[in-house]
Simulated assay, not measured.
Amino acid sequence: MSPETLSKRTLLFVNAAHALDHFVLLIYPTAVIAIAAQTGLSYAELIGLATGAFVAFGLCSLPMGWLSDRFGRRNMLAVFFLGYGVSCLGVASANGPTAFAAWLLVLGVASAIYHPVGSTMLVNHARQLGRDLGINAVWGNLGAASAAGVTALLAASLGWRAAFVLPGLVCLALGAAFIALVPGDGTPHASRTGKTELIPVSRPLALLAVFAVAVIAGGMTFNITTIALPKVIDERLGLDLPLALIGSLATLVFVFGAGMQWLMGRLVDGYTLPSLFVGLALFQPLGLVIAATTQGLLLLVGLVLTIAAIYGQVVVNDAMVARYVPAQHRAKAFSVRYFLGFTVSGFVVPMLALLHAQGGFGLVLAGAAVFGLIVWLASLAFYCLAQGASETAAPAE
């Protein structure tokens, strides 16, 4: 197999894995509405059972970069596909709180593989970094976007268990196809357009600290918004809508995030990262404040602004790792990046349950707005610190 063919196949499966990673992780937050109706347990009780999944999503991402360096990224991505498939079938078989919590934890461990492994494979095989990062991010966003709608439709028509069984079978089938069609890791793409040196920085530790703050706070807004979105629409839109329509509206909101990711993928190749960082981050607190203080149509406007900013930020953050970190350290850097963002934000689930019980989603979204403000302040600090660097507009090796 030629290196070009291997790179194309790898990118296709990496993109599919990104879509599945976000789709599967967000099945439960929508299915929980149907599960609550069937079991009689409250939303707060059931959503709390996903704590282990979301903590493992971040916590277990830390060793995945090291494991991929030892066992191969292709092999680890195969484990992702197969592990996700088995864990989906496991959740579908659950009959009580303990089984739900246990299988969701397994699902969270499997989900942790993708970002440090898949992101490194993407950067290595990309032909045009910004464009391919944007395309990959859109796949992930469409996975998240379709999760609410597809889950709601399956739960309403076939029962909530089918919402886990069918994606699980898809994961297993893709895993088998990946093993058959992608024989190895391959080598970094030799003909990437816009190839330049790494961006030099004069104060790397300060930039790293500020970036870490932004990643942690951004992980909080990411998880609060994506987990709560279906229920926020259910409670605060002001309309008595069936579950399938609630899921469809949530999907529509996520589609705007996909559009922003596509746009950021194009802008990353032509504009400086700190400038994009500052401009995009401003929309997080703005959108969350609007969503926290309004209902109806204005609520949807606030959610659209928030989702667009949050998902666009994913592209910018990944581009920062690709441009500021040497190739030999990228897998570990992506591991740390997602460890910081997803481990801390994994505790969003119990916080969400507590805030919702105390003050509804107005309080939940107000709390998210505080984290959004922290992201924006961190972006300003990053911009100021990066002014001393000799940054170019083209992507780095």
Rank of each mutant, 00 (worst) to 15 (best):
P3D: 15
F13N: 02
N15L: 05
N15K: 10
H18N: 09
H18L: 00
H22V: 00
L25Y: 01
L25M: 13
Y28W: 05
T30C: 09
T30V: 13
G40L: 02
E45S: 13
L46V: 11
F54V: 05
A56G: 09
F57W: 09
G58F: 02
C60M: 14
S61I: 01
L62H: 04
P63K: 00
M64L: 02
W66A: 15
S68Y: 00
F71Y: 15
R73S: 10
R74P: 10
V79T: 12
F80P: 07
F80Y: 11
L82Y: 14
G83S: 05
V91N: 04
A99M: 10
A102N: 05
L105E: 07
L107C: 12
V109S: 07
S111L: 04
P116Q: 04
S119R: 01
G130F: 05
R131F: 09
R131T: 14
N141A: 02
N141M: 02
N141I: 01
A147N: 05
L154I: 03
L158W: 12
W160G: 01
C171E: 01
L174E: 07
L174Y: 06
I179F: 11
V182N: 05
D185S: 06
G194A: 01
G194S: 02
K195L: 15
E197I: 00
I199Q: 13
P200H: 07
S202W: 12
R203F: 13
R203L: 12
L205W: 15
V210C: 13
V213Y: 09
I216Y: 09
A217F: 08
G218A: 01
G219C: 05
I224P: 08
I224D: 08
T225A: 13
T226I: 12
P230R: 02
P230E: 01
K231L: 07
V232D: 02
E235W: 00
L237H: 07
L241S: 09
L241G: 08
L245V: 14
G247S: 07
S248I: 08
A250I: 05
L252N: 10
V255P: 11
F256I: 03
A258C: 02
M260H: 05
L263H: 10
M264K: 08
M264I: 09
G265E: 04
G270M: 10
T272F: 14
P274V: 03
F277H: 14
V278E: 07
F283R: 10
L286K: 04
L286S: 09
L288P: 07
Q295C: 00
T306V: 00
T306H: 06
T306N: 03
A308S: 13
G312V: 00
V314L: 06
R323M: 12
R323K: 11
R323Y: 11
V325C: 11
P326D: 04
Q328Y: 11
A333I: 03
F334P: 07
R337W: 15
F339E: 08
T343Q: 07
G346R: 04
G346H: 04
P350A: 03
M351Q: 11
M351H: 13
H356E: 13
A357N: 14
Q358N: 13
G359H: 04
G360W: 00
L363P: 11
V364C: 05
L365T: 05
A369E: 06
V370Y: 06
S379T: 13
C384N: 15
C384E: 15
A389E: 02
A389P: 09
S390K: 14
E391I: 12
A393W: 03
A394I: 04
